[in-house]
Each structure stands twice: as C-alpha cells, then as structure tokens.
C-alpha cells in the first residue's frame, strides 16, 4: 500500500505517494525527476548515488525514501542557485575533475558536504571524504585538486 512522503528537495516542499520499499534514489530519479544522482552499483559500494540529507552525505540507494520523512534533501541539481553553479561544481569543471561524469554528481555532493563541515581540509582529509566515491576515469588526482582549490586557510 502506498504511503505519503513529505520532504524538501532542493528548497522545494514536496509530497509524494510511494510504495514503502522504494529507495530514496528511486523516488528522486523516477518520481521526482532528479536524475542527477546515479545508480552505479545499488549496494552502497560506489557512491554515485550520494545526496545530502540535512546536510550530511548519504547513499540514497541504501536509504529507504520513508526514512527521510520531513527531512531536507539536496541533490546535485540543487546546488545550482539562480542559474549559477556551486563553486564545487565549477571547480570540478575547471580542474578537469570530470571525465565521463557518471560518478561526478556523487563526488560533488561528498565534496560539498566535506567543505561545509571543514572549510580548510588537508589533502588527506579530502581523500578520506571521497574514499567512498569510486571513479574509474580520473585517478582522483584532479578531483582532489578541485576540492583542494576551495580550501580556505583559517
């Protein structure tokens, strides 16, 4: 039987009727049209489905949608404000941190969460924060550079 889910996605209050076993990733992609978050493995191993729930990165493929009842979800689409990309998104583009781009939405969200928590992460802290976001194209170096470029010395 369908259940009612109320949540905020990218600053918009939404409600949707869903089967209780649906994952957050499925609801975002299939019910709400936010296809930025990707399914790379469906097992929480690759991080391509990473979104923010109340500011913290979660694997949306392992999260039941009903678990985010009343919470605030941010997807990669939601980082664009007034038509302007977020500095994290811009840094990924400018530093060549994107090749095929399939892991990018997840990596961007992990990086965003890190920088919100720690405005001046070290290289090691960046690596640790992104260790759950697999990328087969870039070898991670340019992702680490891109995130590092946003570190603000205190």
């Amino acid at each position: 039987m369908k259940r009612r889910l109320e949540l905020t996605v990218n600053d918009e209050c939404l409600d949707v009727e869903i089967e209780p076993h649906r994952t957050l990733l499925e609801v975002l992609r299939e019910e709400l049209g936010f296809t930025g978050a990707k399914e790379g493995c469906g097992l929480g191993a690759c991080g391509a489905c990473t979104v923010l729930v109340d500011g913290a990165p979660v694997l949306s493929c392992l999260t039941l949608a009903l678990e985010v009842q009343g919470k605030t979800v941010t997807t990669v689409e939601g980082l664009v404000k007034n038509g302007q990309p977020d500095p994290v998104q811009k840094a990924f583009v400018d530093h060549g941190a994107i090749q095929c781009g399939f892991c990018t939405p997840g990596s961007v969200m992990s990086a965003k969460a890190l920088l919100e928590k720690n405005s001046n992460p070290s290289g090691q802290e960046i690596r640790e924060a992104l260790a759950g976001n697999l990328c087969r194209c870039t070898g991670y170096q340019k992702i680490i550079e891109a995130v590092g470029s946003l570190a603000k010395p205190r």
Binding site: T75, K90, D94, G96
Partner: peptide, 20 residues
C-alpha cells in the same frame, strides 16, 4: 588547458545518460 565543453552539464546532473 580546456575544461570539457559539457563539463558543466555533467557537474550539475543535467547530462543525460541512457539510464536517465
């Protein structure tokens, strides 16, 4: 150095893969 011309589309989730 040239960032990919579709880099921003990929960074913002706009790029459409088959699954999308």
């Amino acid at each position: 150095k040239q960032p990919q011309i579709d880099g921003l589309a990929k960074a913002t989730g706009e790029a459409k893969f088959t699954t999308d």
